[in-house]
């Protein structure tokens, strides 16, 4: 990097601006969630947990939280399983149309969410399965498989290609080699993928809003509350969502960094 201090300070300043744009609204939301006043204005009122008490006694919030957690858990498991299979197919085999297969597997995040949501709704309605928890799970799984696959693929790229063959050579069938060699090797990436896909699903609004019907997830519930009126309990719910997602993302990040750390130590 440029050694001159002016460049260095400009760089730090830039970073600070980026981070404040990202985090100031969230911090404001957290601050207002502990504010006794109804309207989010300065000067603040007194410190209060009244909005948290409101959401804890609100059965709508509890139902939405339950739906969100079920959806996030199921999505993460299914998406990680399919993502692992896709990544392993890419790692292990060469076949006709592989680049097309990879492009298709990685396509969903490039489709505008609203288009995806509409298509999902139309498709589920046609099949008569829209408006159920399972329809949200299915939609979220489609959305998150590419993330799962990308993370696990990164890990499989690091594996010594002779490792799996060494297991066969010592008497392991292909299944046993996957279970004993590929899975333990991919474990950090698999856990990271579970965390990340759960976080994405937990936060996702657009698709859930279209296909969830009466099974509202947390983001859908927030949207409904804020369209109706100004209600500070949204800040409380938001803080709770932020905390959950951040925990999952940081966990995933730590697992992936551990992987890199080992790689660097090896050099």
């Amino acid at each position: 990097m440029d050694p001159r201090p002016i460049t260095k300070w400009m760089f730090y300043g830039y970073i600070a601006i980026v981070f404040s744009f990202i985090f100031l609204p969230i911090i404001a939301s957290v601050v207002f969630s502990f504010n006794s006043q109804r309207f989010p204005t300065v000067p603040l009122g007194t410190f209060s947990t009244v909005w948290y008490e409101t959401i804890l006694t609100d059965s709508d919030v509890w139902d939405a939280a339950k739906t969100s957690i079920i959806v996030a858990l199921c999505t993460s498991v299914i998406a990680t399983f399919i993502g692992f299979c896709t990544a392993y197919a890419d790692y292990r085999y060469r076949f006709f149309g592989k680049s097309g297969f990879l492009a298709l597997a990685l396509l969903p995040p490039t489709i505008p969410l609203i288009i995806m949501a509409l298509a999902m709704l139309a498709w589920f309605a046609r099949m008569g399965i829209s408006g159920q928890v399972w329809s949200v799970i299915a939609a979220h799984t489609v959305l998150t498989i590419p993330f799962a696959m990308a993370i696990i693929r990164l890990r499989l790229n690091d594996i010594d290609p002779q490792l799996e063959a060494a297991a066969w050579n010592l008497g392991a069938t292909e299944w046993v080699a996957v279970r004993n060699i590929i899975l333990p090797f991919s474990k950090p990436a698999i856990i990271a993928s579970l965390c990340l896909t759960a976080a994405v699903s937990f936060d996702e609004f657009a698709v859930a809003w279209f296909v969830a019907g009466l099974n509202k997830t947390i983001p859908v519930l927030i949207m409904e509350i804020v369209t109706g009126n100004i209600d500070p309990q949204v800040n409380a719910i938001g803080s709770f969502v932020f905390l959950t997602s951040m925990t999952l993302v940081v966990l995933a990040q730590l697992l992936l960094m551990k992987r890199l750390g080992r790689k660097w130590r090896g050099r």
């Binding site: 010594d160 002779q162 490792l163 063959a165 060494a166 297991a167 050579n169 010592l170 060699i181």
Partner: peptide, 10 residues
């Protein structure tokens, strides 16, 4: 059994 170039220890 094969002794690999990379050794391929698990």
């Amino acid at each position: 059994p094969l002794v690999w170039q990379s050794l391929a220890l698990f």
